[in-house]
Amino acid sequence: MHHVVLERWSRQSSPMHRGDPRVKVLNLLVFLVVLSTAHRDLVQIAVALGGLLCCAIVWSRLPLMGALGRAAVVLPFSLAFAGVCWIAGDPTRGVHLAVKSYLSALAVLLVVSTTPLPALLRGLESMGAPRFLLMVAQFLYRYLFVISEEAQHMAKAAQSRGATAAGMMGRSARFRAAAGALAVLFARSYGRAAEIHRAMLARGFQGHLETLAALHFRKADLALAIAGMLGPVALRFAVERFC
């Protein structure tokens, strides 16, 4: 599954992995802004920025083709949109949208696959994002796959009882059956949440997740920050100057 790969990637070791999450978030924002404001010479800029991303991926010891493939999840939507743009008589815009959304997704993927999500959220918290929201996001991520697995089991159980045999059952009956399954899933999730909550209270949870490792800003992070922020800006400057 998608998350397992990301989880494995984000726990490897490389200079990029060791970087401060706050620096990586700032670098990401700079990259995205530089990319999203590009209009003229977009193709050359995209090649330059894409090259930069590929270098960073290799430097982070991530599989290049794997990362490029994973970022392609945005392409079906973007290409469909580009197709519609083409039909509407504006093919350039369609290409721009597809290129920008793909490179943006690749940049986000690079940051997320070199930073474990808890560390990333902790970095965001120390940058001032609302703590309650981040905590909810963290629990969401933690239980996402537990609950999804439960849903998959329920779907499989329903299938093995013949829920997919369209001829056997009217559409409204199937609709009601799906609604019943969702309601059961809701009730189970709610019950599980209550159990988790009680278990955490019993272990002394007071509404804040304590972490053992504090965030440290080191010299290497300063270098990463400078390289990450100046890199995209300099590349774009060079492209517009010399192309």
Partner: peptide, 10 residues
């Protein structure tokens, strides 16, 4: 917060 997180997972 766990409740809201789990409902998000739902």
């Amino acid at each position: 917060a766990p409740l809201l997180g789990v409902m998000g997972a739902f």
